[in-house]
Amino acid sequence: MRQLKFKPKSRIREFVGEKLISVNAYAALIVTLLIFIFVFKEAIPIFTDSIIQEEAAPDKMVFKQQFYEGREAKWSWQPTSDVPKYSLMPLFIGTLKAAIIAMLFAVPLGVGAAIYSSEFAPKRLREIIKPAIEMLAAIPSVVLGFFALMILATFLQNVLGLTFRLNALNAGIALGLAVIPIVFTIAEDAMTSVPRALRDAATALGANTWQVSLTTVLPAAIPGIAAGIVLGFGRAVGETMIVLMASGNAAIVSASFLDSVRTFSATIAAELAEVVFGGTHYTVLFFIGSLLFVFTFLINLTGDFFLVRLKEKMQGRTT
């Protein structure tokens, strides 16, 4: 019988390979950290530099200010005016309005489509619906923005008889198109991951398809649906190009969803290229960037929390 000669494994090759792979992982981590540090560093003068604080101290950005003598105090974002005004409130309200409309539009559609796709659609149809909706996420946001700017805005103006073509409603709906695939995918995955055994249990107790979905699958998948909504909201707040193109970008404080809005993200995109390096305006824009950074970080953390809950629930570890 011939002998089997096993080749000894190269420890060096494995060592080098392992290190190379880990460098990739660390590189991503380090780049994120560096961006984080850079953005925050540029925003620090808001809290330390007395010249900048004269125009844009934190309280001045939050509360109403009297910019001209004899006029009433108000929130205003006019960073390039003779008297620069750095109230963040108009931008905050604008961001919120666009995001709320996006969510009102995207959540019912996304969750509804997820329920249909996971519970009711025949298998073949499901195999078309899911990639088709997920394809929405692959459309560059500039294309969605262009669509909103040229087609949706005109349509809404004609149907609703609006004075302004570009407004929160228009931007919000376009934003919703970008949010739908996020809500849909995560919610759908959550519902299809509900174990077959649970569906069988409900079916065997005389529940029909509707009851199985509403009383068993949906409650079990709630954390996943919540995660989808939260992450979708993160996208709605952080998304830039769509709102930049479709919102009209007027920093107005109003409760109407038919007024133009200017969001945090669009403000940075529109203004950062034209500011004085290291000036007040520049610093304030970086401060806004930091806010967005912190906000989306918290949102993603919350989303992840819900997904962990979902996983635990599916494995039966919690109630």
Binding site: L198, D200, A201, A204, L205, A207, N208, T216, K313, T319
Partner: peptide, 22 residues
């Protein structure tokens, strides 16, 4: 409606499958 049958013919499965409820 098949669910009518299932109220008369109950079923217990191989792996216990309680709902994530009380």
């Amino acid at each position: 409606d098949p669910s009518q049958i299932r109220t008369r013919v109950g079923m217990v499965f191989q792996k216990s499958n309680p709902f994530p409820k009380s």
